[in-house]
Nucleic acid binder design. Structure first.
Length: 525
RNA sequence: GGCGGGGUAGCUCAGAGGUUAGAGCAGUCGCUUCAUAAGCGACGGGUCGCCGGUUCAAUUCCGGCCCCCGCUACCA
């Protein structure tokens, strides 16, 4: 019996006090590509997402709207999932931290950390605003005043429970040292290391007092669990921590936590320490992706400007999907924004990338190959059973090329993976057609023309396999337009690395209208 | 302030001590018509942020300066 490798990954869980935007979507997309790729490669994948609901902001937002916090959270969760579904994000579970199961498991965890002696009672002193009824950080203050109520804050201390984060400094540094890939990309890793080395880690207050909304602390019910301590636990409560040890043991430790670069500290320092304190293993990798700006920056004036230009719909993911497609949305961000770094979204660029690469390059290549094949050969390559296709890209070693793309995908360099597929493979295929002109050749040497098309169709097969994690629907449409022997659900990257003979004559299996397929990516603009 | 990253063609970026500094996109001009007015080919003379230094030679090495960005503990 063979052991299927498993792959457990998560995205950050989102605050549901506003709808998801293109930035939050960017994170899910990058994670989704990885999940889809790993599934293709035979991993037993579990992909966890969720919403972070036990925060004061959420209960405030709910009361502003005259709703109960729970009803508000459930509705927002529905809205988030609607967006993720529209974008074809292939998550396996969606955790809401306000749900009882999560709360029970979180309590079990904090109790364990407490029993292990890593939580102690103390008092937190800070700047308190009476209006907000909450503490303010130094950074938030504006000349000693509360930024919301514009009046002085007061020094106040109140009892709380601390987590002994400081006890884990050396162990964390050792872990980073022994696991150089733990924090990706490297720039984030360097930041965290220098942070711990230079400033050290302080114990952290992990409770809040007198909040009605949140998870009560089992050993001191007057308190609730601070949102971050609670939120991070989603990653384990979602796979059975606390009530399903078998499932938990199957998937933990996580292979990758996909997060925004701004919250690496919580994931790279606090989170492993929490797990150690509870006797569990730390995650294997944390990937801090970049941000997406809108035409350089985003701001209120920008929103107004976009409205004036009639483009404000581009701020709403659902609208982009509705007007174009999920595939167009996915492709733009994955192609144009480097996942490890920051990217930019602009309407002009969106159309350029879409038209140039999806419509003109890939879509048109598909279209022209289908049409000539249909016109000249009735969609069937007679007598090609057992024929091994020839390479159409001069100087390209297919196995090496696929290995390069694979390397980019595994390192989350999605933009480079797509760049390679388009520039090093699809464009040369168009050049091959141009050079051999089967539409002319068919008049003089039909067999030769057939051979050229037969070879070129292999590029569609290879490209669709490589593109499967990125644009799953279009890739499937391309692949299943022919009778390639391996079922779509079973294709692997390795299948793209070789040109093999077919067990039967290659032919078009797609439904055509007037000998043409409907445009895969209709041009826009 | 400290630590880190960066300033290269209109845009996004790659690059390396040394013949004419590269790619994609956009733009211009041809060819073509199988195809989604798609495809293919040609055309880029850009002080490689500024000022010095090392060197036979620097955009690539060193120093200084200017500008941008990230982190600097509880905000996505």
């Amino acid at each position: 019996m063979t052991d299927t490798p498993r792959w457990f990954q998560t995205t950050a869980i989102d605050y549901p006090n506003s709808r998801p935007h293109i930035g939050t979507a960017f994170e899910k997309l990058g994670a989704d590509v990885q999940a889809r790729y790993r599934r293709m490669e035979g991993y037993d994948v579990f992909f966890l997402m969720g919403n972070d609901e036990n925060t004061v902001k959420v209960s405030k937002r709910a009361s502003e709207l005259g709703q109960e916090p729970q009803a508000y959270c459930d509705d927002m969760a529905r809205q988030f999932r609607e967006v993720w579904d529209a974008l074809d994000i292939s998550y396996d579970t969606f955790v809401q931290t306000s749900h009882e199961r999560h709360k029970q498991c979180a309590r079990a965890f904090i109790q364990k950390v407490h029993d292990a002696g890593y939580i102690y009672k103390g008092s937190y002193e800070g700047w308190y605003c009476d209006g907000c009824e909450s503490f303010k950080t130094e950074k938030e203050l504006e000349g000693g005043n509360c930024p919301i109520h514009k009046r002085p804050v007061i020094r106040r201390s109140e009892p709380c429970h601390f987590f002994k984060l400081s006890a884990f400094s050396d162990r964390l540094l050792a872990y980073y040292d022994e696991n150089p890939d733990f924090i990706q990309p490297e720039s984030r890793r360097n930041e965290i290391i220098s942070l711990i080395k230079n400033d050290g880690l302080l114990d952290v207050n992990i409770t809040r007092r007198g909040e009605a909304w949140g998870i009560s602390v089992p050993f001191d019910p007057e308190f609730t669990i601070w949102v971050w301590f609670d939120a991070l636990l989603t990653y384990i409560t979602g796979i059975g921590y606390g009530d399903d040890r078998a499932t938990f043991d199957k998937y933990w430790p996580a292979d990758t936590h996909f997060i925004g670069k701004d919250i690496t500290r919580f994931h790279c320092a606090l989170w492993p320490a929490m797990l150690w304190a509870a006797g569990e293993q730390p995650p294997k990798k944390v990937f801090g992706h970049g941000f997406v700006n809108f035409e350089g920056k985003i701001g209120k004036s920008r929103t107004e400007e976009l409205k004036a230009r009639g483009l404000d719909y581009l701020l709403e993911p659902m609208e982009i999907v509705r007007r174009f497609s999920a595939e167009a949305f996915r492709y733009y961000f994955l192609r144009e924004c480097p996942y490890p770094g920051d990217g930019d979204f602009s309407p002009d660029r969106f159309m350029e990338v879409y038209n140039s690469e999806l419509a003109n390059n890939l879509g048109n290549l598909f279209s022209r190959e289908m049409t000539i094949t249909w016109k000249s050969f009735g969609g069937v390559f007679d007598g090609t059973t057992g024929t091994i296709p020839e390479s159409v890209v001069p100087g390209l070693d297919l196995a090496t090329f696929v290995a390069d793309v694979r390397g980019h995908v595994e390192a989350c360099r999605y933009n480079l993976a797509l760049q390679a597929i388009v520039q090093d493979f699809l464009t040369p295929t168009n050049q091959y057609l141009e050079k051999n002109a089967p539409w002319k050749l068919v008049k003089t040497d039909k067999a030769a023309a057939k051979r050229v098309l037969f070879n070129a169709v292999q590029s569609l097969r290879v490209a669709s396999i490589l593109l499967k994690p990125f644009i799953p629907r279009s890739a499937e449409t391309i692949y299943t337009s022919f009778n390639f022997p391996t079922p779509w659900a079973e294709v692997k990257y390795a299948d793209a690395a070789v040109l093999k003979a077919l067990p039967e004559d290659l032919r078009i299996t797609a439904e055509l209208l007037d000998g043409k397929p409907p445009p895969l990516f209709p041009r826009i603009g």
